[in-house]
Simulated scan of single mutants.
Amino acid sequence: MSATAETTTTARLTARGAKTRERIVEAAAELMYVRGVGSTTLDDVRTASGASKSQLYRHFANKDEIVRAVIELMGERVIQREQQALGGVSNIEGLRRWRDALVQNNALRHGAYGCALGSFASEVSDHDDVARRALHALFAEWKDLLAGAIRRMQENGKLSAGAPVDELATGLLGAVQGGYMLAQTAHDVTPMGTSIDMALAHIQSLSSG
């Protein structure tokens, strides 16, 4: 076989392997989000993804590695969504539109399953430090996006110059996560909307006029 043909074959196999890995992670993400990490087995993932046992273990040595890959995938999706939603926000009206989109999206599931990142954090943070650190970084990135929106409010004179931007962003993210949990237990997004509204009301109270 020529060097060119060998390279082409290797690239094809690598691409095929990447697709298999992607399929496994996608299937695991769906199962773990709906069922929970603890209730999802490797056999469940293998069956849902259509991968063989050898294919699964070629890409992942154990369940922890799959969980970490799922967190990376879900984290990318959440942060991309928040970047799109918050990137141009510079006033309280924009934050309210962001709030409405979050609540309405969660209402499609009647609050079930909660926040993807929050659900994983509650299940894995105390026994997988690698996963915990990944989640911590994702929440920090989400908080920074909120802080960016609040800081733009401050820069354009919509918020008091002395308002504690990072603390407000942390409180707002806390209201979001607490709201997801309350909506999940009630199967009703009303408490989620109320939680975020209270945080936004506090931010608005610091308006510069």
Rank of each mutant, 00 (worst) to 15 (best):
H136S: 09
D64T: 06
R77N: 03
S119W: 15
L102K: 07
A69N: 02
A51R: 12
W98H: 12
L95E: 11
L146G: 02
C115H: 08
A137V: 01
Y33G: 05
N62F: 04
L145A: 03
L56V: 15
K143P: 00
I79W: 03
G88Q: 11
A61Y: 11
S49T: 13
G38T: 02
A121G: 04
V67H: 00
D128G: 07
R133K: 07
S122Q: 09
G88F: 09
T41L: 10
I71C: 03
D128E: 08
A85D: 09
Q55N: 13
D128R: 05
H127Q: 08
V34Q: 06
R77A: 07
R35A: 13
R109T: 12
F60T: 10
Y57S: 11
L73R: 15
L135M: 03
G36F: 01
L135D: 02
G36A: 04
A137N: 06
L117T: 12
I79P: 01
A107E: 13
D144E: 10
V103C: 00
S54N: 15
N105M: 05
S39T: 08
Q83C: 12
L108C: 02
Q55I: 14
L135S: 03
R132N: 04
F120G: 13
L108K: 15
L135E: 02
R68H: 04
N105Q: 15
G50N: 13
R58S: 13
A101E: 15
V37H: 04
L102G: 02
H127P: 04
R132I: 00
A137D: 08
V45P: 06
V67I: 13
T40L: 10
L73W: 00
H127F: 12
L73A: 06
V70L: 02
I71L: 01
H110P: 02
E123L: 14
L73S: 04
M74L: 11
S119G: 09
A140D: 09
L138A: 03
A140E: 07
R35F: 03
M32I: 01
D44A: 13
L117V: 12
W98S: 06
L86T: 07
R133E: 05
D44E: 12
S90Y: 10
K53L: 12
E76I: 00
L138H: 05
R68N: 14
D129N: 14
E123H: 14
H127N: 12
T41Y: 05
G111A: 05
V130D: 08
S49Q: 11
F60Y: 11
Q80N: 11
D126T: 11
A147S: 06
T47D: 13
M32T: 01
L145H: 07
G50R: 08
N62H: 07
G75C: 00
V89C: 14
T41S: 14
I71P: 00
